[in-house]
């Protein structure tokens, strides 16, 4: 009953009953529906994403402060960045050190803990949750405030050191150590990549290990010849993700230095400097140029990562 009604209704909806035009009519209807479903996304794509990207490219060639008209200055902003602006160069350096040191460290911790937790350890869900919690909280203002105090001159770390009779420096107020505390904060959030590693470890068939141990391979050998190669795609995925993410870190640097990037610009992250230029000095042309340099850096790093991956990432079918 219901079927015939439906068929009738479909026949009516699709007009003439000749086979070919019915399918094209159907396709047209489907496409129309699809565009309706996608309407918010399309508006967002053009108004919130692509429009602003192009606008920021245009602005990067201008001198603009929100109040006056934009003035075309050609490549001045880009040239100034690398030749006349030591703060820009130092922010780039600080961010690079941060990424290069903290990402490998974080991934090493993530992998090590994933290996320890893998394969039927009792209490796995509890450990997993405990190690994951910092990843959820790590980006918040509250934790950055905590960090400022844990590593303050009169903070937790120095109180603990004091128990052993050691007088520690004011970690966040000493240019030699301030960046180190931010690196530590990033390493502290190793839980998220750890969970991705755990999921990856689970994909490795246990028969591989059985075969290897029948052949007399020890634990270390099994790790080097089975676990590590089969895990390289996941390591690669985590690496790309974390490099992109950490290059854009903002909150930690802002809160720990209270918006200054200090002491002595030692925690001046790229994005913090971009914020100060664009929204404190209202030098928006310059900030837009910095944004485009950031886009190129991130695209470049991702590209390099993908190219290099050919030499060390092992995909099962390539051998």
């Amino acid at each position: 009953m219901a079927d015939t009604v439906a068929v009738e209704r479909r026949a009516k909806a699709s007009g003439p009953v000749t086979g070919g035009s019915r399918t094209t009519e159907r396709k047209r209807r489907e496409a129309r529906a699809a565009y309706l479903f996608l309407a918010p996304w399309f508006v967002g794509l053009f108004v919130i994403t692509i429009g602003p990207i192009l606008a920021s490219l245009y602005l990067s060639f201008t001198d603009y402060s929100l109040l006056e008209e934009a003035k075309w200055v050609g490549f001045d902003n880009y040239v100034k960045m690398f030749t006349e602006d030591p703060r820009f160069v130092s922010s780039l350096k600080v961010t690079t050190i941060y990424v290069v040191v903290s990402v490998p460290l974080q991934l090493a911790f993530a992998l090590a803990l994933a290996l320890v937790l893998d394969r039927g350890l009792r209490g796995l869900p509890i450990y997993r949750s405990i190690f994951y919690l910092p990843s959820l909280l790590g980006g918040s203002v509250a934790i950055a405030i905590l960090w400022r105090k844990v590593f303050g001159a009169e903070g937790l770390v120095n109180a603990v050191l004091g128990v052993f009779g050691i007088q520690g420096p004011g970690w966040v107020s000493d240019p030699d150590y301030a960046l180190g505390t931010l690196i530590l904060l990033h390493v502290w959030t190793f839980g998220a990549p750890m969970i991705i590693f755990l999921a990856g470890l689970r994909q490795i068939p246990s028969s591989y290990y059985e075969a290897a141990s029948v052949d007399g391979a020890g634990r270390l050998r099994q790790f080097r010849s089975i676990t590590l190669p089969l895990l390289t795609p996941i390591i690669f995925f985590n690496l790309v993700l974390e490099v992109i993410k950490s290059f854009q870190s903002f909150t930690q640097s802002f809160i720990v230095s209270n918006g200054s990037g200090g002491p002595a610009d030692s925690t001046l992250f790229y994005t913090l400097y971009l914020y100060l230029k664009g929204f404190k000095n209202y030098d928006m042309g310059y900030a837009a140029a910095m944004a485009w340099v950031l886009l190129l850096i991130i695209a470049g790093l991702t590209g390099v990562n993908f190219l290099a991956s050919k030499y060390w990432v092992f995909y099962g079918d390539s051998k």
């Binding site: 990207i53 290059f247 664009g278 944004a291 950031l294 886009l295 991702t302």
Partner: peptide, 10 residues
């Protein structure tokens, strides 16, 4: 993959 900072100024 797009960095958010590219669009914040405009």
């Amino acid at each position: 993959m797009l960095p958010h900072h590219v669009v914040i100024v405009p």
